[in-house]
Design a protein around this nucleic acid. Structure first.
Lengths: 356, 356
DNA sequence: CCGCCAATTACAATCGTTTGAAAGTTTAAG
DNA sequence: CTTAAACTTTCAAACGATTGTAATTGGCGG
């Protein structure tokens, strides 16, 4: 018992410590109260076997009683493990800065669930890469997160590649192609676009349109898949750029409809949300679905089955996608070289396309 | 010039420092490189006026060149300001742990936007209060966040009240009633429920049903408003509990429809999502909307206008709600005693109810 | 030439934990 | 009774920044 820090002769001086509402803010406070050193308290609270069981329980009880919780900042600083994963949503190609895409929002929900389950905290950053290319490094280099999950690649492919070259614990939702450095989990969008167009053609469509802004890689791939399928079948297909942000979408589609070619009888929508707007617009114009025009969406959001008529669409496995992303991130955090994953899209036939 | 830490006789020994790829990880590294003390580097990077303009620019350039970014953990620990706001979604009454409610997800999006705009980082926690009541204190007491935003109150009203009594920077989305300690921003749900029921009655409904689980306070208020209005008009109304989680919702509604009283001609749905499911179910049963049954939703999600027929609903101002929440949180962070806000709901008449 | 003031910069304490090493204590074995 | 081994606990050095205070420098008026 070295220097007078312990409560020797404890209950002798002060009749009852519980009368004084001591505010226990730090490990040191608690240590004084328990008559041990901060080191012991630290280990006791962490549940380490190094401290005597009885001591440990006494300290834990004391901590609970005073509602003490160790300062995370200090803890994380010292241990160099933050237990936090950053989720960032790059909003490169959307001027409108609001996160509204239901697919991304749903993915976010799943990712948050997966991460929480694995004991990670989630730090959310919506990043709008306005010219500067350090939006990603601002997160990876902040020392705030152990790893980063990217919801979409937007038009920032190169930036992501550059960061991935020296920052391992990074996994993106999105496209993967040969020779790509960064780890990506996503649907085979080319294949998805192809399947969509082929289905439309197989069920009788003879003049197609693809609706959706193709600045983002994923959507661009869907377009390429669809147009390739159309070309192969000798069917014409036009591209109609529609913003992915829901606010402008409705107006843009209405606008497009005005000057539209009314001989179009098959529409590949870049997302379910676009498809739903298209359906609505078509109904207002008095065009029958799938009688006059057939429509196919992309994503298979839970909502897709609720439209009138229920939406035929290309399903993306969002739940297992989220799981795969988190899995890969964890592997990478442990130093393993987890690779990309391209999941097969699946055609879900409902009633906006004709039965063959 | 005290002890040999500076690069005196700098370029004498090593011919060119740029040849060596020194990895600059800490302030000290950068300080050595710049030949100044860490204190100066810190102030230089923070852009403080205390350092010479020329020095400051030199240091900033050096930092940029080496991609140096100060460790946030250390910074936050020392300055006791984290610049992080926690957003937590209490999932008390939903066993199904997945965040799926589109209203909450949308609110989350708006909050994240508002906070980012104000220079805050966002820490996301989905909390499922499984018996323990410290789910909130785990966030407020972690030292990780400056303040907390709650997305909904679930059935955890008392827990929130308890925390709010000693933790000021806390703002919740949800219900407010006389004498409540914690700051809440939300819609007047009783009024909303009342308006919904009244509208149905005014347009001819004579036998009502309210669909939605009322364990959460907000939904309960809607139910109370609706049933009060029905009672006042002498119209019967039944309560049909439907889970708010989208997965089970469809099945539950179908189940309810089976044993349903087919004389019901007006449905108040607790949310737009429920309304959409109801619409779908009704269509399958071959019942006409609004001919046989009228339906009114709650929220006015962007999707509400896309249903067939377009959904009559009670609008919640989610965007300005988010803004109000962040505003109040900021005031509270500055010590001001920001109070609650109850926003008026607004009836949005579309086509699932009959014209009067 | 001296002293004083302003402008810079260096020094050193601090934020609250974690953790390796050292120091004490028991207990068990020889 | 001695010594080693196994347990516990304390000590003190990090972790990487921020910031009040002291020290240095140069300029300027007297």
């Amino acid at each position: 018992m070295a220097n007078g820090q312990e409560n020797s002769g404890d209950s002798g001086n002060t009749p009852d410590t519980s009368g004084v509402p001591v505010t226990v803010r730090t490990l040191a406070d608690l240590a004084r109260l328990a008559g041990v050193s901060t080191g012991t308290v630290s280990r006791a609270l962490a549940g380490k076997a190094l401290v005597n069981t009885e001591t440990r329980e006494r300290i834990q009880a004391l901590a609970r009683e005073h509602g003490f919780r160790p300062n995370q900042m200090a803890s994380k600083l010292r241990s160099k493990r933050t237990g936090v994963v950053g989720i960032v949503i790059p909003l490169g190609h959307e001027k409108r800065q609001h996160i509204s895409d239901p697919f991304f929002l749903t993915l976010l929900g799943w990712l948050a669930d997966e991460l929480t389950e694995s004991g990670y905290d989630v730090m959310l950053s919506r990043a709008l890469p306005d010219g500067t290319s350090d939006w990603l490094e601002r997160v990876t280099g902040s020392g705030m997160v152990d790893g980063v999950l990217l919801i979409g690649q937007s038009d920032q492919f190169e930036v992501i590649e550059a960061v991935a070259r020296h920052y391992r614990p990074l996994v993106a939702w999105g496209a993967y192609s040969e020779g790509q450095t960064h780890c990506a989990v996503g649907t085979d969008n080319i294949e998805g676009g192809r399947i969509a167009a082929e289905h439309l053609i197989a069920s009788g469509a003879r003049k197609l349109a693809f609706m959706g802004e193709i600045k983002g890689i994923e959507i661009d791939e869907r377009w390429r898949g669809a147009s390739a399928a159309a070309a192969k079948a000798g069917i014409p297909i036009v591209h109609i750029p529609i913003s992915l942000a829901s606010e402008e979408m409705g107006a843009q589609i209405a606008e497009a409809a005005k000057s539209a070619d009314f001989t179009i009888d098959g529409i590949v929508a870049a997302s379910d949300l676009i498809a739903m707007n298209v359906l609505h617009c078509l109904h207002e114009k008095g065009r029958a679905v799938p009688g006059d025009v057939q429509v196919i969406g992309f994503d298979d959001l839970p909502l897709a089955s609720l439209t009138m008529p229920p939406l035929t669409t290309i399903r993306q496995e969002i739940g297992s996608g989220a799981k795969a992303m988190v899995e890969r991130l964890r592997e990478r955090l442990e130093g393993a070289p987890a690779g990309s994953l391209k999941m097969p899209p699946r055609l879900v036939v409902r009633e906006t396309t004709k039965a063959v």
